[in-house]
Simulated scan of single mutants.
Amino acid sequence: ASVRPEDFIGIHFFSPVDKMMLVEIILGEKTGQAAIAKSLDYILKIKKTPIVVNDSRGFYTSRCFSTFLMEGMAMLEEGYAPALIDNIGRMTGMPRGPLEMHDDVALDLSYKIAKQTALDLGDKFVPAEGADIVAKMVEGGRFGRKNGMGFYDYASKPKTIWPGLAELAPTTKGIDGPEEPGAFAQIDEMKTRLLYRQAVEVARCWEEGVIDDPREADLGAILGWGFAPWTGGPITLIDQTGLSKFVETCDRLTATYGDRFKVPQLLRDMAAKGETFYGNFEGAQKVAA
């Protein structure tokens, strides 16, 4: 609709704006270099860190971050206790567990996004894990931390799990005691699911051309949504795990939990060639030089 499409650009801040250092610049189909340059200058002047991405539903950061919340909801639906899910979420190196983070983002926002996405995608729409649980909570007036009622009740200090959640998502699974040989394997499996679900979505963004610089992908993940900093970011996680091993693990997760862990063909091709994201990027830099 713009009469000057070369000047059209998206600038995505993160909440809370005063604390979050990342700003995501989203390009339109015809965005010109002058608009990009001015946006970068502006963001640097307000002392924040920019990354540049192409357009996608949820852009890059929100799209990938949402998978952390959804995998937490999948675990809740499977019967794992809310406190266990969040504790294991923190054990991955994420700043908060997926249910805590969902409360922070706001449940009613997730609910509204899902309704709009369903309208936009029509028959292609696939409901997110736990969508029914979130809908019932929102319809019951539980919007998250902002109104003091979400997966947690915030009136008490410290916050406590909302007792009514047990009716919507009964706890039927647990982790064996530390003396049981399977306990650590269960914990590692849940940690792997939470991290790999995000990394797979990052790889999909790469294949679709939403991102094309491994440094910006990693930086955006760590500064934008707190992706486990110890990993170096999702692209570094994939590279250092080894693409063949990462694909092998994702294939096992896909067979066990579903297509949400299905890797894009790009990763299979790179694994077959023994390539890495940073290796390819460094090679491209040398050729350009």
Rank of each mutant, 00 (worst) to 15 (best):
150 G>Q: 04
195 L>D: 02
200 V>T: 04
213 D>N: 15
218 D>M: 05
158 P>L: 12
170 P>Y: 03
167 E>L: 11
192 T>Q: 14
137 M>Y: 10
167 E>R: 10
157 K>M: 15
140 G>T: 07
207 E>K: 14
152 Y>D: 00
210 V>R: 00
170 P>A: 03
163 P>E: 15
143 F>E: 09
200 V>W: 02
174 G>H: 12
221 A>N: 00
203 A>R: 13
189 E>Y: 10
176 D>P: 08
184 F>I: 07
149 M>H: 08
187 I>T: 04
147 N>W: 13
154 Y>P: 05
142 R>L: 06
202 V>I: 14
189 E>R: 11
169 A>R: 05
181 P>M: 04
208 E>P: 00
151 F>V: 02
217 A>T: 09
146 K>C: 13
172 T>I: 09
173 K>D: 12
168 L>M: 11
163 P>C: 08
218 D>N: 15
205 C>Y: 07
137 M>N: 07
160 T>I: 13
160 T>C: 09
155 A>Q: 15
193 R>T: 09
212 D>F: 06
174 G>I: 03
154 Y>L: 10
154 Y>S: 07
182 G>F: 09
151 F>P: 06
205 C>I: 05
141 G>S: 09
160 T>E: 15
169 A>E: 08
171 T>F: 07
168 L>G: 06
178 P>F: 15
220 G>A: 03
175 I>K: 06
207 E>W: 09
189 E>W: 06
169 A>M: 06
137 M>W: 12
171 T>M: 01
150 G>D: 05
193 R>Q: 12
210 V>A: 00
217 A>D: 03
152 Y>L: 01
187 I>F: 06
214 P>F: 03
153 D>W: 02
178 P>N: 14
203 A>G: 13
162 W>M: 05
159 K>A: 11
172 T>V: 11
211 I>L: 02
212 D>R: 03
141 G>H: 14
178 P>Y: 15
171 T>D: 05
213 D>Q: 04
163 P>W: 08
156 S>F: 10
215 R>L: 05
159 K>P: 08
216 E>G: 00
213 D>P: 02
179 E>G: 14
183 A>F: 09
194 L>V: 00
170 P>Q: 08
162 W>V: 02
203 A>K: 11
174 G>W: 12
175 I>C: 02
197 R>P: 01
183 A>G: 06
157 K>E: 15
174 G>C: 04
200 V>C: 01
172 T>R: 15
183 A>Q: 14
201 E>K: 09
145 R>G: 00
195 L>H: 05
160 T>Q: 15
160 T>Y: 06
193 R>L: 10
160 T>V: 14
195 L>P: 04
177 G>A: 13
137 M>F: 11
197 R>F: 04
199 A>L: 02
193 R>P: 10
174 G>L: 04
148 G>F: 11
147 N>S: 05
210 V>L: 00
169 A>V: 07
157 K>G: 08
190 M>S: 01
207 E>M: 09
217 A>K: 02
194 L>R: 00
154 Y>E: 10
202 V>Q: 06
191 K>Q: 13
154 Y>R: 08
138 V>M: 03
203 A>I: 12
